[in-house]
Each structure stands twice: as C-alpha cells, then as structure tokens.
Design a protein around this nucleic acid. Structure first.
Lengths: 188, 188
DNA sequence: TGTAAAGTGTACAGATCAGTACATAATGGA
DNA sequence: TCCATTATGTACTGATCTGTACACTTTACA
C-alpha cells in the first residue's frame, strides 16, 4: 500500500480538528476541506477515532520535534535552555493559528481514561516531562525530577492562560517564575 | 414562574456535562438522567447552548464560593493563605468525581472566542485572578499583580496535570513552587 | 500498453442530534 | 373546589452523524 494518501489525510485533518474540535468536525467536513474522498478515508482508517488517534500521534511527533529543535538551535548551555523553553512557548502562542494544546483539548473531549486519545495525550505530556528532566539533569539541578515537574506545570498553565486569554503575557509570567526556580536549584 | 424546576435542571445537568462533555451529552441523555421532561427543558431554555451557559454560570458561582469559603475557613493570615490555595486544590483533585476544570473543557469544546461559553470561561478565570490579586495585596506582596498571575498559572497547570494524570502530586509540586514565589515577594 | 491497486462520487442505511406539537396530568394558590 | 400554571409523555421533523455499497476513474508499474 502506498501510504501517501494516508499521510496526506493525517496532515490535512490535523489543523481542522485543532481549529474546530474533534466532535464538532464531521467526516463530511473533512472531505470538503481535504479534498480526499470519504471512501479513501475509511479505507485507511476503520473509524473516525482511529483517524483522530493517528492525528494525535502525528501531532505529538511534530510538536516535540519542532519544540526541541528550536531549543537545540539556541545553542545555549542547559541552564539557560530551561528558561528558553518559555521563549519558544511564546513564539507558539503568537502564531495566528494558535488555539491551545491539542492534547489538553483531546483529553477534554475524550474523558474516559480508557479512551486511546486520552492515553495518547497523557503520553505526550510524559514524554515532554522526560525530556525536561534530562535537561534539568544536564544543567546540574539539585533535584532534576522536581524541577522538570515544576517547569511542565508552568508550561501547561501558560498554555491554558494563552488559550483562554485571561493573561496578556502568560509566557513571560511563566518564564519569570521558572527563572526563580532555576536560580534556587542551580548554582552559578 | 416558579424557578424550582429550572434550578433543579441546572443543578442536575452540571455533573452530566462535567463527566461526559458538552457535545457528547445529548438532550435525551439529560432527560434520562435528570428525570425532567424535554418539553420542560425547552420551556426554560430555548436552546441547548443556553442551558450550557446557565450551567457554567452556576459552576462559576458554586466553585468560587466553595474555594474561597474553604480559604476563609483556614483563618490563616494572607501570606499563608496564598500557599493554602494549593492545599484546597489538592482536596479538589482527590474528590472521586474530579474530572478537571469545567471551564478549560468548555473553552476546548467551544473554541470560537465569540461563543458565550468561551467568554464565560475566560471570565471565571479573570474573577479568580482578581481574588488572588486581592489576597496578594493583603499579604504585602511587592508586586501583587505579578504574583497573582504567577499563582493562577500554577493553579491551571496543576489542574491540567491532575486531570491528565502525568504528575502524581501536581498540587504539592505547584505549592512548592508557589512557596518560593511568595518567599521572594513577601518579607517575613 | 495492459493490469491491478488505489482513489472518486454518489447515494444510501441506520442512528442520533436539537428542537417542536399537542394532548394529558399534576400542582399550587385563592 | 376551582382554575391557571407548570410539567409530562409521546411522537414527530429535518438535519446531521458515522460508516457502507457500488460502479467508475485514475494511477503506477511491468
């Protein structure tokens, strides 16, 4: 099977689900916007849920790639990289298409903990936490696990604030907080 | 109009929407679980969206009442009250019915910024922020606005972590962070 | 160029959605 | 007890939902 159409579908469905929501997006809407026939969609994915899951997997991959690539590109030492997390976050928030975190939204729409979309969303966050922890350790944090968890909670809070619009500069606020944590945990 | 049935409907619909989601809950499901007839529902609310909005208003009221009542009951001085925010949060997380923040989920399902449910959700967070700021000022924070925004972002991050389950002790982690912020802003 | 795989378009099934019509029953106050 | 208000039950409309059937067309490759 040539997987090109399948990938094209996942790639094109992502921004639609992201923008409109999972339940609110019907298969007919996907047909209209992707230009891919419904027959083909159901040939590649047995159900809508399977497509959603593939979209989430794709999102996990591309988001983490984008994020940590950006972080690497700063070429900063690990300690400064931890603070730079929130600069990259700010870049994301300022994208015109920014609509919050797709995984927070997925776990809002698929609340059953047994639903694979929920599991996939939690897994995404765990992968971020692991990556954060590794940077914390490289930076010489006294308690890398604690610091990573604090930074991740800050990141999630900033995303919620940015999405709901109740704070005009969530990334800057979170960064200011992070810098205090980092200063307290890492000797100069 | 005796508003008893209306209130009963709002009160009974809340946990259903909270547990199942807004789109995923049909009016027929509400009839089945509340025991209130569909005719009556549509006599009190012209549309499902109007019912959802009433539910969100009710949630805003009861949640803030519950939260700040709890905070008052600690009878702590303002500075300690700021840290106690996260103890109360932990109580909430440990409730068996805890399923995340209803407003984060509402803004996930109704993403259009013009949708009243989205506006209502943002308003809830702003009201929390205002209340936090007032306690920060009472506690003698150097920058009450900054501290309140930091604490709110921590709170939202902890809620997301608790809901998605990627951190086993989100309230404790957020509290440890908050205590550093408070110590840095408030002289003993 | 021939052939099998992959994709398309349309039409449909069956379920479920929000919301309505209408006749009947319960309720509460004077 | 009378009467207006309020609530109920059922059956319905028309739209939309996921998913399927099927005949047709395009594509890739040997």
């Amino acid at each position: 099977m040539r997987p090109s159409k399948r990938d094209e579908l996942v790639r094109k469905a992502l921004p639609i689900f992201y923008r409109e929501g999972f339940h609110a997006t019907g298969m007919d809407a996907l047909v209209a916007e992707t230009g891919i026939s419904k027959t083909t969609m159901f040939k590649h994915f047995r159900t809508k849920d399977e497509l959603i899951l593939a979209v989430l997997r794709y999102r996990d991959e591309t988001f983490r790639n984008w994020f940590f690539r950006k972080l690497d590109d700063t070429a900063l030492p690990p300690k400064d990289r931890l603070a730079a997390i929130f600069d990259i976050l700010e870049e994301w928030f300022e994208e015109p298409a920014f609509k919050g975190c797709m995984f927070i939204k997925a776990s809002s729409e698929f609340q059953d903990p047994d639903h694979p979309a929920y599991a996939q969303s939690a897994e995404h966050k765990r992968l971020l936490q692991t990556a954060f922890r590794s940077i914390c350790a490289d930076a010489g944090a006294h308690d890398p696990d604690l610091l990573a968890r604090q930074l991740l909670i800050l990141k999630e809070g900033a995303i919620v604030a940015a999405h709901m619009g109740f704070d005009p500069e969530p990334a800057a606020i979170a960064k200011a907080t992070a810098e205090q944590l980092i200063a307290n945990q890492i000797d100069v």
